[in-house]
């Protein structure tokens, strides 16, 4: 069995993904900033000029609080899902622990995420919402989100080895998800029956928590945090279990 240095390997794989993605782009990490800014402007235009009857203040940062987690989630999930099948050469030739491949892919999206969080925080300050001690919750909610993405990616990346259609299911799910999480609408517009279910979706819960922290300047409620922690941990444990069960026969299907 493989008895190596997990951290060193993880670091090398993350750096590899990051370098490959940015080395051949002239604008480099600038793309990480451009995409959410363009989307933010477009959504702000639609929901303040085309449909001006919403009650939301500070719409640009309101929508950015939704876009940054949503972008991270979809990019990390989609890249992670195909990571095992795309690294067949590695999986079939080197006895590394297989879990490390999708996890490294998710973590390499975190570099990208870090830049976007920087943009979000800068925008929050520009819009006159200062720094306060509630910001200490930010690493907690983001950490739980990353745990959740790792879990769901472990699941879909293992399934994708056996049935390659999984990647297209994931792609469609992401398109659908844009409407099913409160990116550009407020949770209080959602009927109460559905609103409770929303909080079990870690992505929706993260967006709600971010708005509470950054726009309202308050701590997220204990129920929301508990639901976020519960579903993230559950999904991660389930992901590890599914991956562990399925990895035995990766070799035969790649």
């Amino acid at each position: 069995m493989w008895k190596g240095d997990y951290l060193f390997l993880l670091q090398n794989l993350v750096v590899k993904d990051f370098k490959i993605r940015y080395r051949n782009m002239s604008l480099g990490v600038f793309w990480s900033l451009l995409n959410p800014l363009v989307m933010m402007s477009a959504l702000t235009f639609v929901f303040t000029a085309v449909f001006p009857n919403n009650q939301i203040e500070n719409f640009p940062i309101f929508v950015l609080c939704g876009l940054v987690p949503f972008n991270f989630f979809t990019v990390a999930w989609q890249n992670g899902t195909i990571s095992v099948a795309n690294n067949a050469g590695l999986i079939k030739r080197v006895p590394v622990p297989r879990e490390i491949v999708p996890i490294a892919t998710v973590l390499s999206s975190c570099v990208h995420l870090g830049i976007q969080i920087g943009l979000l925080l800068t925008m929050v300050i520009i819009f006159g919402r200062g720094i306060n001690w509630h910001w200490l919750w930010l690493p907690v909610v983001w950490g739980l989100e990353i745990l959740f993405v790792c879990g769901i990616t472990l699941m879909t990346s293992a399934l994708d080895v056996y049935i390659r259609d999984v990647r297209y299911v994931v792609e469609s799910a992401c398109t659908l998800l844009f409407w099913m999480v409160p990116v550009f609408y407020a949770i209080h517009s959602v009927p109460q029956t559905y609103a409770n279910i929303y909080q079990f979706n870690p992505l929706a819960a993260l967006i709600l928590a971010l708005r509470t922290i950054l726009i309202d300047g308050a701590s997220p409620t204990a129920t929301l945090l508990l639901k976020l922690a519960f579903s993230s941990t559950l999904v991660f444990a389930l992901g590890l279990y599914v991956f562990h069960r399925m990895k035995r026969h990766f070799f035969d299907y790649l």
Partner: peptide, 17 residues
């Protein structure tokens, strides 16, 4: 797309070093 140096370190870590 990685340099020789980066590939050496990556491969060494893959082989468990």
């Amino acid at each position: 797309d990685l340099t020789g140096r980066e590939n050496i370190l990556l491969n060494a870590s893959l082989l468990g070093f």
